[in-house]
Each structure stands twice: as structure tokens, then as C-alpha cells.
Design a protein around this nucleic acid. Sequence first.
DNA 1: AAAATATCTTTACGCGCGATAAATTATAAT
DNA 2: ATTATAATTTATCGCGCGTAAAGATATTTT
Lengths: 343, 343
Amino acid sequence: MGQSKIRNMEEFASVSGISRPTVSKYFNDPGSVRVTTRAKIEAALKKHDYQPNVFAMNQNRRTTKNIGVVVPNLADPFFSEIARRVELACIDAGYSPILLSSHGKAEMERDNLNSLRSLKPAGVLLAPFGRMSDYDAIHAFDKDFPLVLFDANIDDIGKAFVGTDNFQSVDLMVEYLCRSGEAPCFFEMKTPPNPNANKRHQAYVESMERHGHEPKIFQAEGEGWKFEEIGSIEGGRLLSSKAFKTNTILCSNDRLAIGMLSAAYGLGLRVGHGVDCDIRIAGHDDHPYSRFTCPPLTTIAQDYEAIANRAVSDLFGMLEHEERLSDRIETTFEGRLVMRDSA
Amino acid sequence: MGQSKIRNMEEFASVSGISRPTVSKYFNDPGSVRVTTRAKIEAALKKHDYQPNVFAMNQNRRTTKNIGVVVPNLADPFFSEIARRVELACIDAGYSPILLSSHGKAEMERDNLNSLRSLKPAGVLLAPFGRMSDYDAIHAFDKDFPLVLFDANIDDIGKAFVGTDNFQSVDLMVEYLCRSGEAPCFFEMKTPPNPNANKRHQAYVESMERHGHEPKIFQAEGEGWKFEEIGSIEGGRLLSSKAFKTNTILCSNDRLAIGMLSAAYGLGLRVGHGVDCDIRIAGHDDHPYSRFTCPPLTTIAQDYEAIANRAVSDLFGMLEHEERLSDRIETTFEGRLVMRDSA
DNA sequence: AAAATATCTTTACGCGCGATAAATTATAAT
DNA sequence: ATTATAATTTATCGCGCGTAAAGATATTTT
């Protein structure tokens, strides 16, 4: 809290009785100066409130403290939830996260990466679109900056990947559904914008075969990120035409499931595992609202916190230890079965 | 997209055959140079892809193209939705929006404003916490930067405010509910984190009195931003104890209503306006998921697009016309009744 | 065509700080 | 106390670009 107005580091150095280069060292790493001088500087800071000019700081620095965080779509609560944790983890580590949403458009993902270039980020955490992404742009970016992927993987891109093990998680759900009732069919989008959908598709097929059941896939038409709407319209169509041969439906993600629950309600179907119920519907992701659907949604919880923390620590580990990791690290966390009333 | 690597504006100027100061002018305003020289520069841009260093650009400039956008909580779909539109509007206008979420904490709102200071933003769009906000910090910031508030108002802070007219919108809903059935009681949080809740409370009371009914308020305990949970637990308690004297409940916002719908479902109550229904539940905001609740939620739609566009145009109007607006502008848009099945 | 105006080039300086080398201390180890 | 080591000071350069002034061209007007 200050009275006088300090214009630059030169002036601040003089009022604190320390030379400017030492003050500069202090701001880059307070631990790198002697305790006595640090005390002087911090005393002066309280009297004169000054803070270094970020633009001048970052102009000549090899590496800034900026961390880019790029997610495909902040309007999706899954991403806003995980982005929130990533942001906080960066702040805790003393970095400045810059959160960018690509608003569901792959070309904006490319633009976002290009914008980040001029910010000279120390590193970037990217949840990519996957196949929809501009591969060349991401590949080029990967060569110029330390990059860690999360949520969705792209082969050989980035120094590390952190996500959920879809094969484990889907198997967990399939196993549970088979054990507790009829084997599930699988409901997904025909052209999903998120690459995890493809993994889950595969995982479902393999898991069903392992359990001795024939996989049954139902694909919804529709593009874009309006998953609930697609789940409601296409799912409702399938439900009302009794296209499903089983009373158990596993949706590729919670948002599709939320849409289907809405359609089922509209059709007067009772959803759940009770004896008086017509169908079971399950999802995947433990979406923030899945606790409050009607009925509450049985789903797989991704470990948001672990994913966010690992992605951040993988990145900062590289940055701070200057490690030249020859090997790309892939970390997947297990999903956790969350049993509620819908299945 | 180019082959050669241009290091700085000097080099780029030479390959384009134009002097550096003119190139500098071009990047600050492409319209300020002659068409023939602009053509040369743009031809060179295609061959050599160069972009000016932002840090060096912003260092000496009086005003940057940075726009700060601060919202209380990106995890709330209402804010992620409106922030998305604000961001896009800024980009369209040629500015660089920097989106910051305060993650539900007032002290982080203050920190966010302080971080923005060092970015020398041309202006800032702030959706404040309201009473919870650090008034002094916001007031000080207001004096140093062009500031426009949206969603929540604070008296005399900012050059403009843009939001929804809660008195109009709540009255619209009360009128509809009274006309189509029993007069509503009002369900809200006892200590809401969002100041609009207080406006809606007042609006409900006034509207009820105007319609000749006695207002009945029910307040839920609970702090923080877990509105659905609070709506579910506290709403469920009230529902099961039959505390409401009327079969019609107006919730202060959709997220509370979503929680209450969940509780009602759990209690086996039929929600809706049909003859066979037990209660009617209405919300406010047209939350992205309110179309998919069971039953779909009758609510008031805020005009996100209009609010975002007006907030941005109010700010840019000031910036670009250098208007010294003596008067603070307050703009409120009307809410729109969205009739679905829940009430 | 000449005159008036708009635009460009040249030259030069400054922004605030990072980085470095050499000289000078202050602190720790012997 | 003397030496070895670590930290600080002094001095100086450079980052990439904004900005301004003066003179040189180009374009438009008469």
C-alpha cells in the first residue's frame, strides 16, 4: 500500500537502497538474493507499492511465467471444471495462466495457439479437438514450446499426455450393467467432435465381447456441441420407435445421457433399475449436473483433480528441471463408477 | 504462410520494401497508409509470415488493444455463456479479450483486477460480485481504467452498466403464474452471492402486492455457489414437510430450480401445470440446461446476446470516440417468458 | 503544368527491463 | 585474522517497437 508513485525499477531501486540489477534478480526469484537485501526490498515494497512492467519484463526474457491453457469449449461444464483446477494449480505454482476457449471451432484452436506464440509462454496445456484439430499447426507449436496435452490424446504430440483410461472406465460400466441386468447397447454421436468418443466406442465393443455379448451401437446424427439436444432428439426418436433391443443404454457421455433422460421423461418412460422401471440409462464423465438429473445419473467419474494436477506437474517438472525427456509420458487415471438411480 | 524467418519489424520492413516507421503505422492501423504501400506490405506478409512482438508493441503505447473480461465464476454456465459472447464481440472489434474468472471468491476478483493493471488494458468489462466485492479495489480501478459493468450493478461504479431488468422480468413471471394458477411463493437463498437475487426478491414482493396477493418467501440456508445442491436439499426439505402453502414455487434462479426439480422427482411429486400435477416450479435465467430438465423448466430468458453486445459497444464507444461521458449509462433489457412444462 | 496536399523515408531517441562482465564488497570457512 | 566464496555494485549493451521531426516523394487539386 503506497503513497509515492514509482515510475520504474530504477527509481524503486534507489528508494530501497539496492542496485537495480539486484532488484531485478529479486523479482525474478526472491530467493536468489541475500536475506538482508530481500528485507530491504520488501520493506520498500510496503511503503511505495511498485510492480515491474510486465511488457518490459517479458520482452527480453528467455522464458516468461505465462502458461497458456487452451480448451475446446468452455461452455461445456466438463472443460470449465477442469480448466478451473488447472488455472488454480498454475497460480499456486507461481505462474500466470491464460485461459483460452476455442468455442467449439478447430480454426479458433489454431488462432489461439498463434495468439499464445506472441505471449512467449513458458509452456502450454492443451486439451485438443483431436482429429478435427489443425494437425500441422499443433505440430509446429509443439516444436516451439513445451506442450502438454490433456483430456484428448494426439499421437506423438506434446511432451506428455494426461487423461482418463477410457478402456478401463467403460469396461467398469459395462461390467456393472451386465452384472446387474441386461447387457447395454451403446448410444453415441455419428460424428463426435471429441476423440474420446472413439476410444469409448472401441472400449465398449471390446468389453462386450469379453463378456460374451454382442455389441449394439446406435449412432445419432447431428454436428457440433449441442449434445443434450442431440441426445434428446435422436435418443427420443430411438426410444419412441423401440429401436433398442435391450432395456439398458450406455451413453458415450453424460451430456447425451442428459438429453436422453429428458426425452424419456417426455415419453413417460420410467428410468432406473427398480422393478417398475422401463429402461436404464448410464453416462460417462460425472458431469456437474448428473447428480441432479431425474433420476440422478449413474455414470463414470473422471478424476478431474488428478488429471489437472498431473498435467500441471508434468509441465512444470519439465520447465523447472530443464529435463530433456526423451520419452513422452502418457498418464491415464482410472474412472470411478458412480452408482445413482438411472441404471 | 512463409518460409523465411523474420526476426523483427526492421527485417520485415526491408523485405517488403517499406520503411519501418511506415510498417509500424500499418500495424497500428492498416487504413492509415496508402493503398499501394498497404498492398506491398500485405504481399510481404503472405510470403514471410511475421507478426509484431506484443510486448515490445505494448511497452510504449499509450493504450493497448487488450480488453479485460472478469466474471465471478466460469463454472456457472450463465457466466460461461455470456463471457463467450463478450469474447467473440471483442475479437470481432479487433481487440484482444483476456478472460478471467474469480472462481467464486471476492478476493480473487480483486487479484484479477490487479493482474489486469499490468496489462494496461484499453478497457475492462466486469461482472462484479456486488456487495461481496472489494469496493475500494473496484473503485480505485474504475478511476484508472475505462470500466463497464454487466450483469450486476454497483452504484456509481463504471462508465456504464448493462443487465436485465429484474423488476420487469419477475413481474412477467408472477403475472403469468397468477393468471394460470395459484399465486407463487418465492424460493431463494438466505445469503445469495449474487446481488441480482436481492433485486428479484424485491421485485417479487412488489409484484405480488400489485396483484393483490401476499408475498411468501422461503429462504434456504447454505453458502457458496452450489445452487443446485442447496435447491435440492433445502427445497426437498420444504417440499417433504409441505411447508409451501401454495402449489406454485418461483425460484430465484434456474440453478435453484434445477435442484428443487431433482428433489421433487425424488419425492415422487409430479411437477407441471397439468391437472394431474402436484406442484408448479419456475425459474429465472433460461439456463442452458433448463430445456432438458424433467419436466422442462418454465423460466425467464435473459437476452445474453443483447447484454454482451451492448456492454461491448458501450465500452468501445467510449474508447474510440474518446467520449467523456458525463453521465453514467444504465441499460437493462427485458426478460422474455419461456413457457415450458414445469409451470 | 504548377501548386497544394498527403504520404513516405530517414534519422534519432526513448521505453523499462534483462543480461552480462568486471570490480567491489560482504559473508562464510579455515 | 586470513582466505575462499558468495553476493552486490557499476557500467554498458540490447530487446523490438513507438514516436517525433525534417526532408524527400508521390498524389491530388487548380
